[in-house]
Nucleic acid binder design. Structure first.
Lengths: 349, 349
DNA sequence: CAACTTTTTGCAAACGTATTCAGGACCTGT
DNA sequence: ACAGGTCCTGAATACGTTTGCAAAAAGTTG
């Protein structure tokens, strides 16, 4: 057409109204006559008009954008993204889109000035953090965010210090169900592979669920059956090597994550152990690969659709100054082939 | 401090210069005295000042943001994201970050007004498209983007109609290498599972590479050994069912993607066939799950780091009005257990 | 020291929208 | 006919930068 791009003034001119009315009409303001509104909208459509987001942001002082930040334990391989988080990505974008928010994605080393980079710079109204808080220094950085009144939500991490900023799965219940399932198919010596320190809040909770199930079954908790592992395949393999070498007998393992389970299974096989005949294995997360393995992996699925929705809704509420009590995402046991006993379970029915 | 957020005026006031100088200093303009620049930068740092992106965008008319759009064959399950694309996501964000671009991510149904939604609205300066162009209507939509002078790059799809807008892997070479490998371990009747129609340009190229290898080896191309499949596990399984039922003998399959291979392997096993003893399998993509399978999957790896970098560099060049001849990403055969013959290959060395 | 170039600065005008405020048009009831 | 209300619209302004232009400051030359 004329010179540059179409603006709300062009629409206004064509419609014979003022620019202010166009702005109102396009935002469905009740202040504008329905007929006028439709006429304006029609013209806008015809001209392929789109509101200039930059101008809109500048004027209204909010970006309608969320930032999704991935962070991982800096000790792990940075080129490998945790598959579980990836599978959450899709659901988060969809949830954001439904709420008419854009999503900015970034992988970065954890730094304590995110809110500065994203909120202060008017790039995003809120931040969603995804990552296992599995290293020291994490707490301090989060505290800075809280002190700065940043709008952010963290997946998974817990603790009173981030009240209202955390959404997670009910890890204790998930781990309890997993362990109980192993007990129900007759396993007695169940090992826990993971990290039970506070450095990894989620893994710690999973350990608690494991203990709770054993206690509920009247069994003791054997420290020799607990082997440390970080959320990596290789770490899971190393843990099994250690366990096997110790000579301590075991007939099942519950791992704090699927990635650990995958490494563990490989190493178990290398040690000549059959799965599930000699050792039952249950993981946690239900990453896509879990069903592709053979034997396919029994695991705890986290509802990533609900999780994505919750994260998005929650951070948007914070942005709007509302308070929303976080609900825990419910975990679900997915029984596949890696722990056997399916037939016996079937018999019980 | 005072009332609202810190602006460049505040900095200017403190530094005793004009706001214009602050703006220039922070952008490292050569027009400003080095000493003054450092003084201004120091103050900015102290005040935690961040340039307001909305204002910056509005004035400069570019967003320093790229949009990454995923699209999938609408016939496939929308909730499942192609794992190969997910593994590219990380590399694309990193490449974008290196170039100081933000990345907007979205999963949407393919529509022909992306450039309108993203570029016209000043949300992004350019678009990266990720997805198998495996359905009709795709070409028309892309043509509209070209006609609108949109800044975009597509991964994978090819053809003269999108000259300069496409970056891909050398699918023909990859498939050629895969097939040649199968031949080298003594396989004779190699089936192709995939889509050889123009609807799926990449799969078609992989089919061509397959044919080329067979021809180079002096073998014929048997239509009965070609079974249609889309990029899904279930489709791969169905294809194998069909092949087995046909009674046509085969001792190897080359699938157009790892997902297909995964479904194929499951179904082969169900048919009582041993892998790799009875049938060798080679996939394409090297998705994370490929190495977790048992037997682990021999496949063609695409260099996603180089690919991400290329996509980002390319679209940024388009934005800047430069012309960059796209380079093909080099595929690499990753030999694992699913095609056997490792020993025989080793013998040959 | 004048004339001229180079470096460094400030002024002021955009960029395109959202929103406040004031007012016009149109009813309603008396 | 007029006061009082409701509904709709337009003029004008502010959001915080970037950048063209002009001019001051500093340096160079004859």
């Amino acid at each position: 057409m004329g010179s540059g791009k179409t603006t709300s003034f062009d629409i206004a001119h064509r419609a014979g109204v003022s620019q202010a009315t166009v702005s109102r009409a396009l935002r469905d303001s009740p202040l504008v006559n329905p007929e006028t509104r439709e006429r304006i909208k029609k013209i806008a459509r015809e001209l392929n008009y789109q509101i200039d987001r930059a101008a809109s942001r500048l004027r209204s002082q909010h970006s309608n954008t969320l930032a999704l930040l991935f962070f991982e334990d800096p000790t792990s391989d940075a080129s490998q993204i945790n598959p579980f988080f990836l599978s959450m990505l899709g659901n988060i974008t969809r949830a954001a889109a439904r709420r008419n928010y854009d999503l900015l994605v970034s992988f970065q080393q954890l730094s304590d000035d995110w809110h500065i980079k994203y909120e202060v710079s008017n790039r995003a109204d809120g931040i969603i953090l995804l990552g296992y808080g599995a290293y020291s220094g994490f707490k301090d950085k989060v505290k800075k965010l809280i002190d700065a009144d940043a709008h952010f939500v963290i997946w998974g991490a817990t603790g009173p210090h981030l009240r209202g900023h955390s959404i997670g799965c009910d890890n204790i219940k998930g781990a309890y169900d997993a362990t109980t399932h192993l007990l129900s198919i007759g396993r007695k010596n169940i090992a826990f592979i993971g990290n039970k320190t506070i450095d990894s809040p989620e893994f710690k909770q999973r350990y608690e669920g494991y203990c709770k199930a054993l206690t509920a079954a009247g069994l003791g908790i054997d420290p020799e059956l607990q082997v440390y592992a970080t959320n990596q395949e290789t770490s899971g393999a190393a843990a099994i090597a250690e366990l096997v070498e110790s000579g301590k007998p075991f007939d099942a393992i519950f791992t704090a994550s699927d990635l650990i389970a995958i490494g563990a299974i490989k190493r178990l096989r290398k040690a000549g152990l059959q799965i599930p005949d000699d050792v039952s294995v249950v993981g946690f997360d239900d990453i896509p690969a879990a069903s592709y393995l053979s034997p396919s992996l029994t695991t705890i699925r986290q509802d990533t659709i609900a999780a994505g929705q919750q994260l998005v809704d929650h951070v948007i509420c914070m942005i709007n100054g509302e308070v929303l009590e976080p609900k825990k995402v419910v975990p679900k046991l997915v029984i596949r082939d890696s722990c056997g006993g399916k037939s016996s379970a079937a018999n019980q029915l």
